[in-house]
Design a protein around this nucleic acid. Structure first.
Length: 345
DNA sequence: CGGCGTCA
DNA sequence: TGACGCCGG
């Protein structure tokens, strides 16, 4: 909602996928699905679809990305949104309106200028119930655990990581850090050579602030739940919080008005104590090859050769000597790399 | 986005 | 082998 990008004040590390081998990553599912739907398109902006007109861009994204990264030794937990907090409604309404505007522009432009149309097509992407259900189906056939959040997926993912059931949260957004995720991974695609990792602990240490301070900084800039203060970006917000300690004291010192941060106490409380399920089950299953094949190839007309190849990356081979020696080699590599990452966590 | 064929 | 560009559904 706000104008600034809190990412500007977060210390970042860039790591290759090898460094993530052996780690458990809680994925902000909505965020990843949105990325797939927005980017996996034809040059004129049309998403991938089966012959019944059902969108399949996200299924393509999942089958290739998840199998690739699993083959690199990563374990996934996909965390899905529940119902959004009341304070987010304004943002959601605004997003819906700009999506509908983009859809009109796309439909108008697709015959005139495909490459201009593409931009609007991407902006018109949305995650509906059918997208969510088909994604859950494919993930469950792949044996990937799914966790439902009562409210924000990022909050649930952060809770899972903070509790120690995952090492990182994967999302393009920064909110999971505010929700207490110890580590955030961005740009987690196969084509990105290096992923961005942000450690909450390192962030707080770098600026000598608390998580509550960081949340106040985010509220001043603007979040999904408030507009933020006009003219205040991440640098100014951080400076103010470091000088005065909290939003209450900045207001008391008459440095800012409350316009754009009216609900700051409620929002701060939401980030500190979000609505999450404390009981959830995380269980990795072996992929059900035949269910994946019938779902993707029979129902959605994927190429069987391609899907088989993707699956071959993650299905257990016969347990011969070759295999077990490679496995133990991987395990040795994994523990030394895990130690390297934990240096700055 | 990721797969896959092409070409140097 | 790696950069490039079209195709997938």
């Amino acid at each position: 909602m706000g104008g600034g990008d809190i990412g500007e004040i977060l210390p970042k590390h860039y790591v290759g996928v090898e460094n993530l081998s052996g780690s458990i990553i809680a994925v902000d599912a909505y965020n990843m699905l949105y990325q797939f739907l927005s980017t996996i398109r034809q040059p004129d902006g049309t998403p991938l679809m089966d012959s019944n007109g059902r969108i399949t861009s996200h299924l393509s994204g999942i089958i290739y990305r998840v199998t690739n990264l699993m083959a690199c030794g990563i374990l996934f937990i996909f965390v899905f949104d529940g119902s959004p907090p009341e304070l987010k409604m304004k943002t959601l309404k605004r997003r819906k309106e700009s999506r509908e505007y983009a859809r009109m522009q796309w439909e108008y432009l697709r015959e005139i200028s495909p490459e201009l149309a593409l931009k609007y097509a991407k902006a018109s992407a949305y995650v509906d119930e059918e997208i969510v259900e088909s994604a859950k189906k494919l993930l469950s056939y792949l044996g990937v655990p799914i966790v439902q959040s009562p409210s924000e997926g990022e909050a649930q993912a952060a809770f899972i990581a903070a509790r120690g059931d995952a090492h990182h949260v994967a999302s393009q957004d920064y909110d999971s850090l505010l929700f207490g995720a110890p580590s955030l991974i961005r740009n987690m695609s196969i084509s990105h050579r290096h992923y961005t990792i942000i450690s909450l602990h390192e962030t707080l240490k770098t600026h000598n602030i608390t998580r509550e301070n960081l949340i106040d900084v985010a509220i001043l800039i603007g979040t999904d739940y408030n507009d933020g203060i006009r003219g205040i970006g991440p640098k100014k917000a951080l400076k103010l919080i470091k000088k005065y300690g909290c939003i209450e004291k900045i207001i008391a010192a008459k440095k800012i008005d409350t316009e754009g941060i009216e609900d700051y106490q409620i929002i701060r409380e939401m980030f500190l104590h979000p609505d999450v399920y404390e009981n959830y089950e995380i269980k990795w299953n072996p992929p059900d090859e035949s269910k994946v094949l019938s779902f993707l190839c029979d129902e959605h007309e994927f190429s069987e050769a391609r899907v088989r190849r993707a699956l071959s990356r993650i299905v257990r081979e016969r347990d011969d000597d070759d295999r077990s020696s490679r496995d133990s080699e991987k395990r040795r590599k994994k523990s030394s790399e895990q130690a390297r990452i934990s240096d700055w966590l």
